[in-house]
């Protein structure tokens, strides 16, 4: 990489870091001020709604398979169903993910073998 590309990379790195850290510091300061003033309106409602919807959006985007074949969609559907069933039973984090990936993999392998 020449010097100009290094500089661009450094600006991207610092910029991304600031995008992550400055809003957190701003909110921390806001919360401390609210606490000092003994008022009870710490977080704007839209911000608290945005957090779960961001996670839901990440889920939606990650659901679309890279290779959009019937078998990939079937593997996705069965993988999600398995994850949900294991989560309902265990209420844990690791096991449902393992089971979902396993089911997804099994369907992918079966589809590959069946497809020749």
């Amino acid at each position: 990489m020449d010097n100009a590309v290094w500089l661009a990379m450094a600006i991207c790195a610092v910029g991304t870091f600031l995008l992550r850290v400055l809003p957190m510091l701003w909110m921390k300061r806001h919360l401390i001020r609210q606490q000092a003033a003994a008022t009870d309106a710490p977080m704007p409602v839209w911000l608290t709604v945005l957090a779960p919807t961001m996670i839901a959006a990440m889920f939606g985007v990650s659901l679309v398979p890279a290779n959009q074949s019937f078998s990939a969609w079937l593997a996705t559907a069965l993988g999600i169903l398995t994850t949900l069933l294991v989560w309902r039973r265990t209420r844990s984090l690791g096991w449902p993910v393992c089971a979902g990936v396993l089911m997804f993999g099994v369907v992918e392998v079966v589809a590959l073998v069946a497809g020749g």
Partner: peptide, 20 residues
């Protein structure tokens, strides 16, 4: 070749567990 297709499914599975 299949490893790269299968392992990334951990992300939607994880998001689902966090959302449920």
């Amino acid at each position: 070749p299949l490893l790269g297709d299968v392992m990334p499914f951990a992300l939607p599975a994880l998001f689902l567990v966090l959302l449920a």
